[in-house]
Design a protein around this nucleic acid. Sequence first.
DNA 1: AAGTGGTCTAGACCACACC
DNA 2: GTGTGGTCTAGACCACTTC
Lengths: 217, 217
Amino acid sequence: MRRISDKRWQPGDLIPGEVELAEEFGCARATVNRALRDLADDGLLDRKRKAGTRVALNPVRKATVEIPVIRQDVEARGKAYSFDVLDRKELAPTSILQQQYGLAASTPLLGLWTLHRADTNAFAYEERWINLAVVPDIATADLATLSANEWLVRNTPLSRGEFTFSACNATAAESRVLNCDQGAALFTVNRTTWVMDDPITAVRLVYAPGFSMKTMV
Amino acid sequence: MRRISDKRWQPGDLIPGEVELAEEFGCARATVNRALRDLADDGLLDRKRKAGTRVALNPVRKATVEIPVIRQDVEARGKAYSFDVLDRKELAPTSILQQQYGLAASTPLLGLWTLHRADTNAFAYEERWINLAVVPDIATADLATLSANEWLVRNTPLSRGEFTFSACNATAAESRVLNCDQGAALFTVNRTTWVMDDPITAVRLVYAPGFSMKTMV
DNA sequence: AAGTGGTCTAGACCACACC
DNA sequence: GTGTGGTCTAGACCACTTC
């Protein structure tokens, strides 16, 4: 790391192999491997078998953002968390949802519209679609006490997800619910979650004005 | 991972120690250690000496967002990148900057206002402060051909940074530069970068409407 | 004090990717 | 074919934390 930092090893440079570095530093090859692997995980090195290890050309900064359950997020800010399910409907996917996720027209979906609060203030507004074909049990769960998000986290196997962060102007409906001006800039997260190849849930989360997401590199 | 996924090990559960798992799986302890460490890095396990390893209670989703140099971001979208330095000033820190970063009133700063374009469209508007006390060389660099961001990446030792993502309504000036409506919701990134304990640069980056940042978990 | 994870060693074999 | 990183082993000592 020091050699990258002070430019003795410059971006694109091929650095010595593990065996050579182990000799130079007087340690075992496994130790060098661990160090180089950690640096590669951080995006500072590019490693390839046979080709060797190079200092990363694209200093792509990889930031790890932690995306906590909303309740924890609110509580971490020292506020009391509460939420209300404003609306709830079981219905078939719209044609947009069908093509976006490759769902059959007969797939049963549960739609939930939820307001999350910090103390008594609106914190975020959530629109969520849940695939009842994959998690039918949630249809009978008491989602007024345990949020759908937490229910899914507890009752669903590990999953992979995709997040999209953007900014949106508050619609009339959103401004009413979030108690802000229409057109206010709102930080928005779209999340889709799959188990295996089945989409479980799609969420659009609109945070009240002033929200920000912080991360370190 | 399978045992976490199928809930045989539930959130909060204390799982067997490394020695025991190594016996069970018929492998060396180092192999178990590597596996558990990887899972802990992914946020699935919490590990503490003496206390043991537990399945993470807070399934804090850790998403790794890649924050590329803007030029690469634009080029990855298949557009031609260009930029213009709209304004440039050397001056002392405002009192706000002084207290925010603990700068002396005499610290020389370079302020840059830059418009980044994708093809001929505005892509992002950047306001940047550079600490000339730490990187004096940049004052004489040709920042019209190589952006300040890339100059810093190439000429500065490794640094740590802090990112804040938020949403802002376009000011009158921003709407002119980004060619959008005043008040449009703009995705905004604030970044501060340090080398050791010295702040090098603070950037406020305002993306044109429609920008989104995507990441997988 | 004791038990846990954290790290290291010396050696070995494997798999991939380039020649 | 061959050299690189990827992974594993068996053993050892250390450091942190909780008991």
